[in-house]
Design a binder for these strands. Structure first.
Length: 434
RNA sequence: GGAGAGGUGGCCGAGUGGUUGAAGGCGCACGCUUGGAAAGCGUGUGUACCAGCAAUGGUACCGCAGGUUCGAAUCCUGUUCUCUCCGCCA
């Protein structure tokens, strides 16, 4: 959520940015409602002031009954509840509309109407050359007995899979590799230096979060909508999370950090759930798009002035991870229409998939400024004693399914063996191929 | 699932329907003291919204939502979460 004071003073900019991000919001109506809720609030305050002073006078009088005051008190009571009811109605409409206003994009976010207008900012690594027609991950996995979707379909339906054998070992190797990298200060220094970033080197704390989240916190994270893409737990006020971001970012709701505690960095491992509504028939082969997938996700809380640097650090970490696995990739600066509603800035990394002869999205980095923190009420007390909202960043470390697809397709040979990236070998008993 | 206990400020912990935004303690900040520190002493120390240049003032908040009352942290109802015991269970 934005700061309403900002909207009052910059209505035209807010309208313009909302349009650039493809969100239709009636900003004028929001301001109208803002005005009337303040009027009603003031009215309610005045009535309560009178009620309180009557009660005070009554108290001074030793609690003796005074008919006039009692009468007046009764009238005030109904007046107050009447004003409160009007306020409640206005508030409801106000917040419903106000929540729809997206975050303001950072200055350097390219303006674009669709994801086709994302800007390619760099391409890294050489695509592997094969002396044969490279196959896609599913063909290889099928041959190797790594993925069983037929039985998964019997048990759970479409977009589920049993991951089996060496592919499971590979997943756990990747997890170890990431956890070790991100909790190592020396590694972070190497990454930050490589990207020319002067940042705090505090390591990430590994986290295994809950996979369910309450409605109010999900909404405060601005990740509940569209609900069609979420799984609701029947008879409970709970949803399955769609990304560790959702349960990590909401972790410190209603908390006030001491400035010294920041930056606070987490790397969470979580199985994520998505209904993939509206993608029927898309990416049905293999495990590229599943209802359930495992993901390593970074999340951090910083001061406002460190937020952008943190975002850049996250992207540098993502690049480091992909590069260290020897995978070719490209970095895209997402345009206004694609960064997402709570985002001020967003970067995608697409990794080369020879089997599809395409780069496909494997990573996203989101910089939310204080947009999420405002509703979560996650704040920091500065040295001066001032309270400020924190800035939140989240970014994929690895979406395990997708990165394993990339490893399989880039590392394949004609026989269906897969070369293990060197960085992962220590976690696979030194094996060079799977 | 059954039974019971309890949610008060950064933390612990008082609280008889009105002098309680909230005792007391801890913590923290500043000052005094000291060669320096500790101890000791003193002062201060919640959040949000509204008005105001500011000082400040008003309102709300004692898990949450209702209700009773001139007046609710305190009484009533519902609800939620935590803890303990039993049951079940990895």
């Amino acid at each position: 959520m934005l700061d309403i004071r900002y909207v009052r003073e910059n209505a035209d900019r807010v309208k313009e940015f909302s349009k650039q991000k493809n969100y239709q919001v009636d900003v004028d109506r929001v301001l109208e409602l803002d005005e009337s809720r303040r009027e009603l609030q003031q009215k309610a305050d005045e009535l309560r002031t009178e009620r309180n002073s009557i009660a005070e006078a009554m108290k001074q009088a030793g609690g003796n009954p005074d008919q006039a005051s009692i009468e007046r008190g009764r009238v005030l009571k109904t007046d107050i509840s009447e004003v409160e009811e009007r306020l409640r109605v206005v508030d409801e409409e106000f917040f419903t509309l106000f929540k729809k206003i997206p975050n303001i994009p950072a200055d350097d976010v390219p303006v674009g109407a669709t994801e086709d207008e994302n800007v390619l900012s760099k391409t890294v690594g050489d695509k592997p050359q094969f002396g044969f027609a490279p196959r896609n991950h599913y063909e290889i996995a099928d041959q190797r007995g790594w993925i069983d979707k037929e039985r998964a379909s019997k048990v759970a339906g479409a977009r589920f899979a049993y991951i089996k054998g060496d592919l499971v070992k590979l997943q756990f190797a990747i997890i170890q590799f990431v956890m070790n990298t991100l909790s190592d200060e020396a590694k972070l220094k190497e990454i930050a230096d490589g990207a020319g970033l002067d940042v705090d080197l505090k390591p990430f704390t590994p986290i295994l979060p809950p996979l369910m989240i309450r409605t109010d916190l999900y909404d405060a994270m601005d990740r509940l909508e569209p609900r069609d893409d979420r799984y609701k737990i029947e008879d409970e006020d709970l949803w399955l999370q769609g990304s560790a971001e959702h349960v990590l970012g909401s972790m410190h709701a209603d908390e006030i950090f001491d400035a010294k505690q920041l930056p606070l960095r987490y790397v969470g491992y979580a199985t994520s759930f998505r209904r993939e509504a509206g993608t029927y028939g898309k990416d049905m082969e293999g495990i590229l798009r599943m209802h359930q997938f495992d993901k390593l996700e970074m999340e951090s809380f910083t001061t406002g002035e460190d937020g952008l640097k943190e975002h850049l650090l996250f992207v540098a970490i993502q690049e480091h991870l992909v590069r260290t696995l020897g995978l070719p990739y490209q970095v895209l600066q997402k345009c206004t229409a694609d960064i997402g509603k709570p985002n001020a800035r967003g970067i995608d990394i697409e990794t080369w998939l020879p089997g599809q002869d395409k780069y496909r999205e494997t990573h996203t980095a989101d910089y939310m400024t204080d947009y999420q923190a405002r509703r979560l009420k996650t704040r920091v007390r500065r040295e001066s004693g001032e309270l400020e909202l924190v800035h939140t960043n989240d970014a994929t470390a690895f979406a395990l399914g997708r990165i394993m697809i990339a490893i399989i397709e880039n590392g394949q040979d004609e026989a269906g063996n897969v070369t293990v990236p060197e960085a992962l070998r220590p976690y696979l008993g030194g094996r060079e191929t799977l």
